[in-house]
Design a protein around this nucleic acid. Sequence first.
DNA 1: TCCATATTTCGAGAATACAGGAAATATGCG
DNA 2: CGCATATTTCCTGTATTCTCGAAATATGGA
Lengths: 117, 117
Amino acid sequence: METQPAVASLSALAHEVRLSTFRLLVQAGPDGLPAGEVARRLGVLPNTLSASLNVLSHAGLIASRREGRSIIYTANYDAMRELLAFLMEDCCGGSPEICAPLAAIASQCCVAEGARA
Amino acid sequence: METQPAVASLSALAHEVRLSTFRLLVQAGPDGLPAGEVARRLGVLPNTLSASLNVLSHAGLIASRREGRSIIYTANYDAMRELLAFLMEDCCGGSPEICAPLAAIASQCCVAEGARA
DNA sequence: TCCATATTTCGAGAATACAGGAAATATGCG
DNA sequence: CGCATATTTCCTGTATTCTCGAAATATGGA
């Protein structure tokens, strides 16, 4: 990943409603959530949320599909991974032991539970 | 970490010069770099860079110390870790196998080289 | 003290982001 | 078709951010 798209992603996440929205969709998994449900859970007006979804979508962090009258939004896990990888990528140039705890966080978070399955 | 400080950190990073500055300092390791050196490497005016450093510092992402006439800036690795952990923290609630690759990235990045030492 | 270096602070104009009201679009159902 | 639901688009005033020139501050050395 290069700097410019990373800035775009970070900008999209640098907003209370948008960050909460993204986290909600990440939690929701591949099934995603309809826009209205997100608005209800976060307590924001539908049009305000729509603007937030638009920004996140434009940055490639989420995707959408129509289902009946609802539009379902889902997190783009690839984009999330790319952004995190970009942020982690530099720390090893200096001293690996400094950023090693990041791996510990990730394995605590993901592998420990994933490996158990 | 909570949403509000996370937004502050993301806002600080959501800017081309500031993101590049932060990455440069992360690469530089605990010794850090003087402000002038960062400005020279990134090709930005000293006062513009100063504003960027101020924003990053205010968000807690970097720290500074004076050394003679120079002011040396260093990355705050703890803050970086907290932010990354915050972003990763939700993915497991859904499906662990989705975010497991994050652990792979982190271990590629840090542990593989760190363990070799 | 005087000067050069390193960095920050101040100020102003231009550009951009934000929130929310009102209206428009799309879908499903009777 | 007519109506309710779900969501988006448009609009507008306000607030914030960004950039850069000019001036100020801090340090070290002659």
